[in-house]
């Protein structure tokens, strides 16, 4: 099977984000593989174990520095990488077009993995756009996957413990959720091996994608600082409980 994994190079969720100006963050922070994409790569590697003649290709759009994230995906099991290089901040419509074009140029996908969302722009939509461009069915927040004889059975999580199980024809697009697996962090030999795996770098321009009819553009960024000023609730546990209930009833007005 030809397994493509779309990955993103994102700032570490624990990093402090500073703004350079109204529309750009200071990128001098640690960047890494988007956490949901770790689940996507892990699932691709598990699939390859079952179908040994498979190849896993990690595809990423970003600046040259995103190579690091492709290397991480390789250390976790990807066989080779494709970096669609651009300095532009692309919206989801352009990103999906670029990933679609890069995959079409490279080969024929049997299954495409993504994370269910990226933790930087949190758009939650690229997997659906990729699916629409290919005409493949799409699931998101997958928590269980079984691929056999040309079809995929996938269980997806909604909130509150609700699930939906779908049967998809291959090729399909699977947006990985946290419930899907437990990523194994690469060993040192894996990291060394990953350094020797091939990465094909192509420029976004060279893909000559047809521009989308619409666009999404960031026009302003502002730090979200929400400084709260805590008041203490003291006394015995019974007093504290009583005061919490009073606040819920009288101040927040959420309890009768």
């Amino acid at each position: 099977m030809q397994i493509y994994v779309c990955i993103k190079h994102v700032p570490d969720s624990a990093a402090n984000i500073h703004l350079l100006d109204d529309t750009r963050i200071d990128e001098k922070v640690a960047f890494l593989l988007n956490p949901y994409d770790e689940h996507a790569v892990t699932e691709a590697a598990a699939l390859k174990k079952k179908a040994a003649d498979s190849e896993i290709i990690a595809v990423c759009i970003g600046k040259p520095d995103a190579e690091k994230t492709i290397r991480t995906a390789m250390a976790m099991g990807a066989d080779r990488g494709i970096l669609v290089e651009t300095d532009e901040a692309c919206d989801s419509m352009t990103t999906a077009r670029a990933l679609h074009a890069a995959i079409v140029q490279d080969g024929s996908a049997d299954i495409i993995f993504t994370g269910k969302e990226s933790i930087d722009s949190e758009g939650m939509q690229t997997q659906f756009r990729i699916g629409a461009l290919f005409g493949f069915p799409v699931v998101t927040n997958a928590a269980f996957l079984d691929v056999t004889s040309g079809k995929a059975v996938v269980t997806c999580e909604l909130s509150g413990g609700r699930t939906r199980t779908f049967e998809l024809a291959l090729p399909c697009v699977v947006g990985a959720g946290r419930g899907l697996n437990t990523p194994a962090y690469p060993t040192f030999p894996d990291v060394v091996k990953a350094r020797k795996k091939p990465i094909k770098t192509i420029s976004l321009d060279s893909l000559s994608i047809t521009p989308a009819g619409g666009s999404a553009k960031t026009v302003a960024l502002a730090p979200l600082v929400q400084k709260r000023h805590p008041k203490k609730i003291t006394g015995t546990p019974a007093d504290q409980a009583k005061e919490i209930i009073r606040i819920l009833q009288k101040e927040a007005k959420v309890l009768a």
């Binding site: 949190e122 619409g214 666009s215 026009v219 979200l224």
Partner: peptide, 23 residues
């Protein structure tokens, strides 16, 4: 057609402008 949303783990508020026939 500008939406306000949070990004970067809720550390940044972003204003995003959409263009298109339908948004």
């Amino acid at each position: 057609n500008i939406a306000r949303t949070s990004q970067y783990s809720g550390k940044v508020l972003a204003d995003i402008q959409l263009t298109g026939d339908v948004v």
